[in-house]
């Protein structure tokens, strides 16, 4: 395996469409729930332990070889918002494209073929990490980091927040992200034996509600 492949995959410039998604930050900013770096930190911490943990476990389980179809169904059940399911599938389809160009593999080809409208992004992320020769924990880190880096970057643009403050938020979350990655991998190992139903189902009601609210806006900067 190549550890450096993790840097390629986790790079914010990896061309898989993430830049157009705020991870719920645009809705939270408009609702007045994020107005500062402190609010951003609170938002990111909540997202890390809910949607982030679920994404991390899904991605790690895909690396371990839990069937992508099972994981995709588990992701559907853990994503009640149709707007978020749509966004996750669009991002999954965009990632499959970049992944197949970067790490050609029969499993990625099969994923693209079996999910023409896109599989959930964390599932694709896991299959990609597997194709790149990465470990389950690498995929979990990638998913968890994206769950907080997306909102941080978006908030810099939405609030003209000082980018140094936003980066400070991400750095402060690092120790929690380490623990969440371990939890995600442990859960993924359970799922290997017990099935995808054993994966965490942590939810943030306002992430789902905000996504539905956001999807109804006629004018917005971010896709989700």
């Amino acid at each position: 395996m190549s550890r450096a492949a993790l840097l390629v995959l986790a790079d914010g410039r990896f061309p898989a469409g993430g830049h157009a998604h705020s991870g719920g930050a645009e809705a939270a900013v408009k609702a007045g729930r994020i107005t500062s770096a402190a609010g951003l930190e609170d938002f990111c911490r909540g997202r890390l332990h809910t949607a982030g943990l679920v994404a991390g476990a899904l991605a790690a389980a895909a690396v371990l070889g839990v069937p992508p179809g099972d994981l995709d169904a588990a992701a559907d059940a853990r994503t009640p918002s149709p707007a978020l399911r749509g966004a996750a599938r669009r991002l999954g389809r965009q990632l499959v494209r970049a992944a197949r160009a970067s790490w050609p593999s029969a499993e990625l080809d099969a994923l693209a073929r079996d999910f023409p409208k896109g599989a959930h992004h964390p599932v694709v992320l896991g299959v990609t990490a597997r194709a790149a020769g990465l470990a389950p924990v690498d995929a979990a880190y990638c998913a968890l980091y994206e769950s907080v880096s997306g909102p941080a970057t978006a908030t810099v643009r939405l609030l003209s927040l000082d980018p140094f403050e936003a980066t400070g938020v991400l750095a402060r979350l690092a120790p929690e992200l380490d623990r969440a990655a371990d939890t995600a991998v442990e859960a993924a190992r359970w799922a290997l034996d017990e099935g995808a139903g054993a994966l965490p189902a942590a939810s943030g009601p306002l992430l789902e509600l905000g996504a539905e609210w956001h999807a109804g806006w006629p004018v917005r900067l971010f896709a989700s």
């Binding site: 332990h49 942590a202 009601p205």
Partner: peptide
């Protein structure tokens, strides 16, 4: 887990 009363969860 942290953030449960923050803007992503219950606010």
């Amino acid at each position: 887990p942290g953030g449960w009363d923050g803007p992503a969860v219950l606010a």
